[in-house]
Write a protein that binds this DNA or RNA. Structure first.
Length: 878
RNA sequence: GCCCCUGUGGCGGAAUUGGUAGACGCGACCGACUCAAAAUCGGUUUCCGCAAGGAGUGCUGGUUCGAUUCCGGCCAGGGGCACCA
């Protein structure tokens, strides 16, 4: 029987600040660039300083901290920094609402959130803290922008842009979701503006190809980026225009197609309303001009564009088929053709494309099948479908296609490409292979105040002139007002007036600021030497630290942030600011934190704090605390203010301590999946904190721990449990499977408390338990660092747990002398047979056949076959 | 519409990647301690069955000595992209 000595409860509220102060005083987490140990860079996506951290942050940073602390224990020089993604709209909104300056609001939020993050006990090097709104940061961003421009990676062009009418600013394509602004939710309009662009399309091929090298990224994210870049391989084909019908000066029409194999199924051409040919044709046809105008007006809202009916207008122009001068097809203007993809013109093959067949049906154009499945039944079905208006879009064999007949899709593609490439029109080949991308250039101009000023000056004489680097940073003016819509920089009385750096004449500053995604596209590089005032990066530092070994953040950044950062890093490489192309070697995207919702009868949502849960054998019921009325338990959803199902990290840390919050966040759910925050779960985590503490206290009190002799069977089992847990946690931290790490730790604690409960602790058992407890605390340390320090101290170890090296695994302990085979008869488990680990196959078979349960299952029949998988399983086939 | 992912107890999930399905936690139930409760400790907990035994990883076929794992078809849920030629 256990002695059941009483130990004081572990008091997180006293213990946690104490250890944090010691870590701070010892400068435990300050990282030196010149440290000779091998480097490891672990980074969590830095937060926007909204004012308070939320549970998503807790989960993200708890995971990153496990990796950082583990790698530190493994002997790495770990870089684990933190900063603030501090520019953006909310600061301006707050300025408007509360009449505070965005900077005041932002820095107050940073201070508040920093205190919250500190209370989590993260092993961060706060000396490297950066805020993107600080001139000492954006100064370098401006310098890089100028370098990028000189390297030809920045462009100023007139373009149709996504205009958010609520935020009164331009949005990148990536920031338009379902036709609405990603922040405001307003229906986005199309507007023609002169804007600054980053030429990300110059890297389209590289950004696509290099995805193959990112083998430590989630497949899902790579796929999303691949789809976003949207590479397609096709053919540019030049069609001659029938001169009798074409406007003057137009002799040919270039189209882009990925299906040149279907060329003999062509029944019409379609061009964008903004296509030069459409404009020329409009000049002599008022009805066509009206149609094009209408299409353009439709285009003001992205949403309208998507739901719009597919319509066309016959220009009267005919195009000549590249393989048959006698074959002429009509040229339509169509509202669904995009001017900025391919050439803004297509040929339509109705039998092989859903949209084309709809169009052909509507305008009574021919529908000729050219590809069908090779087998007879498939062919018949496909022909029937096409006749009924359903296209056949898959590969197959060619029909109705002259010299292509009988060829496969691929062969026909190549045949057409080769034949047309060797023919010429006006001295150029009729067709050439061409790769196209869906990816558009990154428009970075924002008509906002709270962002990084674009360091350019517009001079009437000299044109657009970069601000000389000696004049950087272009600082935001402090005295701005937010009392009217639009860009406060534009309204400022003096800021934008400046002398031209070249000719000295009065000139105008660029008042657009940079998309805040620019700020987060290089912060990971700045962390490597944030003290360098002269340049964005220091070669020795940036090139030894990058790439980030492990980056952790939300899946919502799968496209925007991660694609921009990959581009920016390449641009930095090109301009000499870094020597790598890929910023993030390993990427992990964690799931969301979700919580039950509670909805009162009148439809209002209640917070978890306003209700009480009763659970019994027949389920869980919720009651409102104020009036005891029963409340409906709703779906489990992402924590959000609108559903009122949020839990404040401060409350949890105040009640249970940071370790409990961290432990619960890491347990149960696999980190890439959503985790359901439950009060029961947190209490369970809190119970374990107490249990771990008690076990360590009990073991610390044992006598005979310095035993150095033979370990008996029981004590060996305890040691084995410890080393199995060590092996398991090591393996699973490396693979970021934190829920399994937690399970291994629980198993070890069960083994230790089981041994303690038996009582009569022999000296060898005491020694085994002490060894096990030491390992236990070290396994705990990356996840519950404060508790680990307290246990480390009570066990009498010198120094800090946070400074201890990872325990050494005794592999021999994991292997037992004997092995118990599960024995199946005809695939069903019937017995366990224990034999020596080294027993030869014949001996295993003999032991199995001698087993009574096996004999019973065989019912006297001789076994047909015995399959022995060494150290796995035995299956007897009867 | 196209592309991708996921379906395992009351719940979150585990399963050495083709080898004992349900580790670990939560919840529930039983017991100990207690005047009592909380806390703590011990036990039970996939389903049917008193048991022997049988069934069982969304459904349905297949491959295999053996399938949660591989292949085909279907169903359900989630995500991404969406006039991209």
């Amino acid at each position: 029987m256990s002695q059941h000595r009483e130990y004081p409860r572990y008091n997180a509220r006293e213990s946690e600040p104490k250890w944090r102060k010691i870590w701070d005083d010892e400068k435990l987490f300050q990282t030196k660039n010149e440290d000779p140990r091998p480097k490891y860079y672990v980074l969590e996506m830095f937060p926007y300083p909204s004012g308070r951290i939320h549970m998503g942050h807790v989960r993200n940073y708890a995971m990153g901290d496990v990796v950082a602390r583990y790698k530190r224990a493994r002997g790495f020089n770990v870089l684990h920094p933190m900063g603030w993604d501090a520019f953006g709209m909310p600061a301006e909104n707050a300025a408007m609402q509360n009449n505070t300056h965005p900077a005041t609001w932002t820095y107050a939020n940073i201070a508040a959130m920093k205190a919250q993050l500190k209370s989590m006990g993260l092993s961060l090097d706060w000396d490297r803290e950066i805020a993107t709104c600080d001139p000492s940061y954006y100064k370098h961003q401006q310098a890089m922008f100028i370098d990028f421009m000189k390297a030809g990676l920045v462009e100023r062009k007139v373009s149709k842009v996504n205009w958010d009418p609520v935020d009164q600013t331009v949005l990148a394509n990536e920031q338009v979701i379902d036709g609405r602004g990603w922040r405001s939710g307003a229906l986005v309009e199309q507007k023609e503006l002169t804007q600054w662009f980053m030429k990300i399309t110059d890297y389209a091929e590289e950004l696509d190809a290099a995805l193959d090298t990112l083998d430590r990224w989630p497949e899902k994210v790579r796929l999303m980026q691949r789809n976003w870049i949207g590479k397609s391989e096709g053919l540019m084909v030049r069609w001659a225009l029938d001169q009798a019908s074409a406007p003057k000066g137009f002799t040919e029409l270039d189209i882009y197609t990925t299906r040149p194999d279907t060329l003999f199924g062509a029944s019409f051409m379609a061009i964008a309303p903004d296509h030069p040919l459409a404009k020329a044709a409009s000049d002599r046809n008022p009805a066509l001009a009206a149609f094009c105008d209408e299409c353009r007006r439709m285009g003001t809202s992205v949403a309208a564009l998507e739901t719009a009916e597919k319509r066309g207008f016959d220009t009267g122009i005919k195009a000549v088929h590249p393989f048959d001068p006698e074959w002429k097809v009509p040229v339509y203007v169509a509202n669904f053709i995009l001017m900025d993809y391919g050439t803004g013109a297509i040929f339509g093959c109705p039998a092989g494309d859903q949209r084309d067949i709809e169009f052909a049906t509507k305008y009574r154009l021919p529908i000729l099948p050219v590809i069908v499945p090779a087998d007879d039944t498939g062919r018949a079905a496909a022909l029937k479908d096409i006749a009924e208006g359903k296209p056949y879009v898959d590969d197959g064999v060619m029909i109705n296609s002259r010299f292509l007949d009988g060829m496969t899709t691929d062969a026909a593609f190549n045949e057409v490409a080769n034949r047309l490439a060797s023919e010429s029109m006006g001295g150029r080949p009729v067709a050439s292979r061409k790769v196209n991308y869906r990816l558009r250039d990154w428009g970075i101009s924002r008509q906002r105040y709270w962002g990084c000023p674009i360091p350019m000056i517009h001079c009437e004489v000299c044109g657009v002139v970069p601000v000389p680097k000696k004049d950087l940073p272009v600082k935001l003016p402090d005295d701005v007002t937010f009392d009217r819509p639009g860009n406060p920089l534009d309204h400022h009385a003096t800021w934008k007036h400046v002398g031209c750096p070249q000719c000295g004449k009065p000139a105008r500053r660029e008042t657009d600021t940079m998309d805040t995604f620019g700020d987060s596209s290089w912060y990971f590089a700045r962390f490597t030497d944030p003290w360098n005032e002269d340049a964005p990066t220091t070669p020795a530092a940036v090139n030894s630290w990058l790439p980030v070994n492990q980056y952790i953040g939300g899946i919502e950044h799968a496209i925007l942030h991660l694609l921009y950062a990959r581009f920016w890093t390449r641009a930095m490489h090109k301009t000499g600011h870094a020597a790598v192309d890929e910023p993030f070697e390993g990427l992990f995207t964690q799931g969301m934190v979700v919580h039950e919702t509670y909805k009162a009868a009148d439809g209002t949502w209640l917070t978890p704090a306003e209700i009480r849960i009763e659970s019994g054998a027949n389920g869980r019921r919720a009651f409102r605390l104020s009036d005891n009325s029963e409340i409906g338990i709703g779906d489990i959803e992402k924590m959000s203010k609108s559903r009122r199902n949020t839990v404040d990290p401060d409350d949890i840390i105040g009640t249970y301590g940071a370790d409990t919050a961290r432990w619960f966040m890491l347990s149960d759910s696999p980190p890439e999946r959503d985790v359901n925050w439950t009060e029961d779960g947190v209490q369970g985590a809190g119970r374990f904190v107490q249990r771990a503490w008690r076990i360590c206290c009990e073991i610390a009190d044992l006598s005979g721990v310095d035993h150095v002799g033979h370990f008996g069977a029981d004590s060996t089992a305890v040691r084995r449990a410890a080393h199995k847990a060590l092996s398991g946690v090591t393996d699973d931290v490396e693979r970021l499977r934190f829920n399994r790490c937690v399970a291994h730790v629980y198993e070890l604690s069960n083994a230790m408390s089981g041994a303690l409960a038996k009582g009569n602790v022999t000296p060898d058992m005491a020694a085994a338990l002490r060894e096990a407890a030491t390992i236990f605390v070290q396994l705990l340390a990356p996840m519950m660092p404060h508790l680990a320090e307290e246990c480390w101290a009570v066990l009498g170890h010198a120094g800090l747990a946070g400074n201890a090296r990872w325990p050494v695994l005794e592999k021999a302990l994991l292997v037992e002398d004997s092995f118990t085979y599960p024995v199946q008869v005809n695939g069903k488990k019937r017995a366990d047979v224990t034999v020596s680990r080294t027993a030869p196959q014949a001996e295993v078979e003999a032991a199995v056949l001698a087993d009574a349960a096996v004999q019973r299952a065989l019912e006297g029949r001789p076994p047909k076959k015995i399959i022995v998988v060494p150290l796995r399983i035995v299956n007897v086939v009867g």
